[in-house]
Design a protein around this nucleic acid. Structure first.
Lengths: 242, 242
DNA sequence: ATTGTTGTAATGTATGTACATATAAACAGG
DNA sequence: CCTGTTTATATGTACATACATTACAACAAT
């Protein structure tokens, strides 16, 4: 009998249930296709009503994390198609959601001169220094992604900010900059020596390369971001309606 | 008093409510920020219960079409305007747009047994044969993409169709199947022997791999598609709003 | 004028209940 | 052995109800 739900907590019961379900989802058994206890049973275990539990389950179904079939039951979705091209979760938030612990291998903040493409995107002179952020992140056993970001001077970053917290929240709270639009280009490339060194892979290995342009609500450029992902470590999901 | 909801229809009431709400959303008044009737009032107008109406509203809130605030009410979300990019151009249409002439190197139609993932996606037994379409396409100087598609038996393809015309138009006109939703997963992989052979590149070279799940308006699976793009030949672009 | 209080209107949370529907599995009949 | 039929079980749909929370608005007190 589970009873991990606190009826006296200010956190809504369905939200608590959602958290519990996310935990279950990340467990190996459920990842491997084990059927969840049925609604009635699970509701009883958690000591909440079926309707409340359903609220939590439905949210996860909508996100594409769970699938349900009558008579069969509820289980973790096979092809984890995380719905809504919500690319607005931070990297760590997203990984957390998928139950992956991440480790920071390097974080580097510096001032740099933008190359032509960046200066062009920011609409500034290439003599003007911009803040550059590099991050090397991955699983405990090794890095699998190398990021480089450049920020528009308008944002007002000093380099002393706390770059460990979710980036877009930090920008919003500390600098009142609200990122609302991103354009991304995704391609496959071969690792050059630099990237191969960072990701600890052979030169020439496949790398998923993402170039990202981030704008504020006035469509003014905010961030220029490059991401290099070790092959197979990362799947980019997109959902589109006609 | 609205009463556009048919209680005798086999279509669930919440689904009917959802359709009505979508219509309202598209109306000018609501686009311009008019507040919707409150839940209780609207439920009364539609002659359904508040819970049922809420089911519909919540779905649209999840989708980001509506925003709600206590005491203020429910209205159309500001920023939304149709997000997402058009992945709905056919390959050749898209290439044409970019001024690239396309050559077909191979087109192969056959019947095949689906592997577990495909059978699972289609929700059919893996003994049931499905139509398989392979295409190798590229520039005059060489191929740069290899596609494999599987079609759900429901579509009713015989294999004798004209696969040279734009696929989704053909499906719509010849088989009344309207593809409206696609979920895609993009990753980088190393070319295995088969793919390397097709694309005429060394084994182990980087390849942009796209897995695509296509659904009709009822979210029923229609097509399962794999695309292998030679590195640097293809850039995937995504635009997303928050 | 500012600050605090109270009313009220909207969504948010939560439960209990009832019946519908889809389907896997067991069963029976040929 | 296969084929149809029944049964049990899980999700799906729908409603009625109650109380909590939030936040704007009006008013009162300082």
């Amino acid at each position: 009998m589970r009873h991990a739900i606190d009826h006296k907590s200010p956190v809504p019961l369905h939200a608590q249930a959602e958290i519990l379900l996310r935990q279950m989802i990340s467990e190996d058994e459920y990842q491997n296709g084990k059927i969840f206890p049925n609604e009635i049973e699970l509701a009883k275990q958690l000591a909440i009503s079926r309707s409340t539990l359903r609220q939590a389950i439905n949210k996860l179904v909508f996100e594409g994390l769970l699938v349900r079939r009558k008579r069969t039951g509820t289980k973790v979705a096979k092809s984890v198609v995380s719905s809504r091209s919500n690319n607005w979760l931070s990297f760590s938030q997203e990984m957390k959601l998928r139950g992956i612990a991440i480790k920071n291998f390097e974080t580097n903040i510096s001032w740099a001169l933008p190359d032509e493409e960046i200066a062009d995107f920011f609409e500034i002179k290439s003599e003007r220094q911009v803040l550059k952020m590099e991050k090397l992140r991955g699983k405990p056993e090794g890095p699998f992604v190398y990021f480089v970001s450049y920020f528009h001077p308008r944002v007002g970053l000093t380099g002393d900010e706390d770059f460990t917290q979710p980036l877009y929240e930090m920008l919003e709270h500390e600098h009142s900059v609200i990122a609302t639009l991103s354009k991304e280009e995704i391609s496959a490339i071969a690792a050059d020596e630099f990237i191969a060194g960072k990701l600890q892979i052979p030169v020439g290995s496949p790398v998923l390369f993402r170039k990202r342009f981030v704008f504020d609500h006035g469509e003014r450029p905010i961030e220029y971001n490059l991401g290099f992902y070790k092959a197979d470590s990362f799947v980019y999901t997109v959902e589109s309606l006609r």
